[in-house]
Amino acid sequence: MSGNGNAAATAEENSPKMRVIRVGTRKSQLARIQTDSVVATLKASYPGLQFEIIAMSTTGDKILDTALSKIGEKSLFTKELEHALEKNEVDLVVHSLKDLPTVLPPGFTIGAICKRENPHDAVVFHPKFVGKTLETLPEKSVVGTSSLRRAAQLQRKFPHLEFRSIRGNLNTRLRKLDEQQEFSAIILATAGLQRMGWHNRVGQILHPEECMYAVGQGALGVEVRAKDQDILDLVGVLHDPETLLRCIAERAFLRHLEGGCSVPVAVHTAMKDGQLYLTGGVWSLDGSDSIQETMQATIHVPAQHEDGPEDDPQLVGITARNIPRGPQLAAQNLGISLANLLLSKGAKNILDVARQLNDAH
């Protein structure tokens, strides 16, 4: 009898209710805020589980004197976190989706994509230029951005401005803007500013005609071990179906173009009346040469937790077992079709030249 009692006690200790789920994140304040929001949602869904947040620095956090596009290494903000995932030191990792490459290392998958916040870019102005827009900034004003995508589009749109690289986390960039006289304004992701509670610093939100956004911008991705079915089931509740389908289309477009950090590629997606609209573009580094096109596809946005595919093969690095396969494939095909259209119009040449120029500098 006593033996059975011990077995029952052991089973209770090993039951999922007692389990601590370890969540990996970057150390920056924004990353911690984003991770806290994901953990809060998981806690609400699984009140019996405990969650421990483990923060670590990544290569991208450490190399702050070089433009991201020049470092010449993929997975700048993800490699150390993936290493911890691989060694079973954490069970899942919360990322900004735009930091996750469209091809993940073997053994990993994006197990959830959370509801997207505003994906557009924002302009934050130096205190002396508050009330201005990019259009009304004085001639030769210097605007800071760490992104080739932003610089290429904005140089084309605002030729009277000069664009220079600015690195560091959000706090560091804002301090550089406010305390030094080098920059009249800087460009940042609206979602990051909003998550930090800095709505009052948003001086201008850039519309798609001015600057399309990065693939996955404004959404959070939760990376897990691809074979860890328990954790895949656990994080599945975080999937937002519309965000998922938009981001599958965007990531398929980028992957098929073979774009990345070192080339200016941008997108804009919208879901309306059962249609998914995808606009994508590529630019030369100075913005003088560009190709942009829009395509659409009829896609039914499923309700969360309709029964999805059981075999769960990944699409552009994403596993969404609780979302039907048909809409996911339709979104992926839309991204591939748009990429093929741009490639047929000469996108590869623009991107190759951009890559060579970026590598040469």
Results as ranks from 00 to 15, higher is better:
residue 100 L to R: 01
residue 201 R to W: 09
residue 240 D to T: 06
residue 72 G to H: 09
residue 43 K to I: 12
residue 334 L to T: 01
residue 167 R to K: 06
residue 213 Y to A: 01
residue 205 I to G: 12
residue 168 G to C: 01
residue 181 Q to K: 12
residue 85 L to Q: 06
residue 198 W to T: 06
residue 206 L to G: 06
residue 288 S to P: 12
residue 240 D to G: 01
residue 132 K to G: 13
residue 348 K to D: 12
residue 39 V to F: 07
residue 229 Q to V: 06
residue 126 H to L: 08
residue 121 D to Y: 03
residue 238 L to T: 01
residue 295 M to H: 03
residue 66 T to F: 09
residue 41 T to Y: 10
residue 229 Q to N: 14
residue 335 G to T: 04
residue 222 V to G: 01
residue 204 Q to R: 09
residue 79 K to Q: 10
residue 59 T to S: 14
residue 156 R to D: 07
residue 152 A to F: 04
residue 161 L to I: 09
residue 305 H to P: 01
residue 106 P to R: 12
residue 23 V to K: 01
residue 256 H to S: 12
residue 106 P to H: 13
residue 298 T to K: 09
residue 219 A to L: 01
residue 169 N to C: 05
residue 54 I to E: 14
residue 203 G to A: 13
residue 317 G to Q: 01
residue 68 L to K: 13
residue 223 E to H: 06
residue 310 E to G: 12
residue 84 A to K: 08
residue 353 V to D: 15
residue 204 Q to L: 14
residue 164 R to S: 11
residue 55 A to N: 07
residue 209 E to W: 01
residue 333 N to D: 01
residue 88 N to I: 11
residue 287 G to P: 01
residue 193 L to A: 01
residue 174 L to M: 14
residue 153 Q to G: 08
residue 274 G to S: 01
residue 307 D to G: 15
residue 155 Q to H: 12
residue 296 Q to C: 01
residue 34 Q to C: 06
residue 79 K to R: 11
residue 285 L to P: 14
residue 247 C to E: 04
residue 37 S to V: 08
residue 97 L to K: 04
residue 264 P to W: 03
residue 123 V to D: 05
residue 239 H to R: 01
residue 39 V to K: 07
residue 322 N to H: 09
residue 212 M to N: 01
residue 176 K to T: 10
residue 212 M to H: 14
residue 96 S to D: 03
residue 138 P to K: 10
residue 343 L to N: 15
residue 236 G to T: 09
residue 123 V to T: 14
residue 98 K to T: 01
residue 144 G to M: 12
residue 146 S to Y: 06
residue 122 A to I: 04
residue 317 G to C: 14
residue 285 L to K: 09
residue 152 A to I: 12
residue 343 L to R: 14
residue 249 A to E: 03
residue 45 S to F: 06
residue 235 V to T: 01
residue 240 D to P: 04
residue 196 M to E: 05
residue 63 I to G: 11
residue 357 L to F: 14
residue 186 I to P: 01
residue 312 D to S: 01
residue 133 T to S: 10
residue 20 V to R: 12
residue 254 L to W: 15
residue 319 T to W: 01
residue 215 V to N: 01
residue 165 S to P: 14
residue 59 T to I: 06
residue 171 N to K: 13
residue 85 L to W: 01
residue 200 N to W: 13
residue 346 G to K: 01
residue 37 S to P: 06
residue 287 G to K: 01
residue 206 L to Y: 01
residue 111 G to D: 03
residue 61 D to L: 11
residue 219 A to H: 01
residue 229 Q to M: 12
residue 31 A to G: 08
residue 343 L to M: 15
residue 38 V to R: 03
residue 301 V to K: 01
residue 29 Q to C: 14
residue 235 V to I: 03
residue 276 L to V: 13
residue 234 L to R: 07
residue 291 I to M: 13
residue 302 P to L: 12
residue 316 V to I: 10
residue 278 L to Q: 15
residue 261 C to H: 01
residue 38 V to L: 08
residue 81 L to F: 12
residue 256 H to I: 04
residue 178 D to Q: 06
residue 335 G to E: 03
residue 197 G to W: 05
residue 322 N to Q: 10
residue 25 T to P: 01
residue 321 R to N: 06
residue 172 T to E: 01
residue 303 A to F: 15
residue 336 I to D: 01
residue 314 Q to G: 01
residue 305 H to M: 07
residue 72 G to L: 07
residue 294 T to D: 01
residue 286 D to T: 08
residue 142 V to F: 07
residue 166 I to Q: 06
residue 265 V to F: 01
residue 139 E to K: 15
residue 165 S to D: 01
residue 262 S to T: 01
residue 93 V to D: 07
residue 41 T to C: 10
residue 278 L to G: 09
residue 262 S to A: 15
residue 269 T to M: 05
residue 206 L to W: 04
residue 163 F to L: 14
residue 20 V to F: 09
residue 84 A to D: 08
residue 196 M to K: 05
residue 106 P to I: 10
residue 252 A to V: 15
residue 173 R to S: 01
residue 332 Q to C: 01
residue 304 Q to S: 14
residue 259 G to L: 12
residue 199 H to F: 15
residue 245 L to E: 03
residue 171 N to W: 14
residue 140 K to C: 10
residue 197 G to V: 06
residue 159 P to M: 08
residue 66 T to I: 14
residue 73 E to Y: 10
residue 164 R to N: 11
residue 159 P to D: 07
residue 56 M to K: 13
residue 152 A to H: 14
residue 72 G to Q: 04
residue 93 V to M: 09
residue 118 N to F: 10
residue 360 A to L: 07
residue 48 G to R: 11
residue 24 G to C: 09
residue 53 I to N: 06
residue 70 K to F: 10
residue 49 L to P: 11
residue 29 Q to S: 12
residue 98 K to E: 04
residue 271 M to G: 13
residue 189 A to K: 05
residue 116 R to S: 08
residue 92 L to T: 08
residue 33 I to T: 12
residue 158 F to K: 06
residue 214 A to I: 04
residue 160 H to E: 12
residue 91 D to N: 12
residue 40 A to M: 14
residue 73 E to K: 10
residue 359 D to W: 13
residue 214 A to W: 01
residue 321 R to K: 15
residue 203 G to I: 01
residue 136 T to S: 14
residue 110 I to F: 05
residue 358 N to R: 15
residue 32 R to S: 08
residue 159 P to N: 13
residue 183 F to S: 10
residue 299 I to Y: 12
residue 98 K to S: 01
residue 176 K to D: 09
residue 166 I to R: 04
residue 118 N to A: 14
residue 143 V to M: 10
residue 152 A to K: 07
residue 355 R to L: 10
residue 291 I to P: 09
residue 300 H to N: 12
residue 48 G to D: 13
residue 232 L to V: 14
residue 43 K to T: 12
residue 316 V to T: 03
residue 299 I to L: 10
residue 329 L to V: 15
residue 332 Q to F: 05
residue 245 L to C: 11
residue 220 L to I: 01
residue 135 E to W: 11
residue 176 K to I: 11
residue 189 A to S: 08
residue 22 R to Q: 10
residue 118 N to M: 11
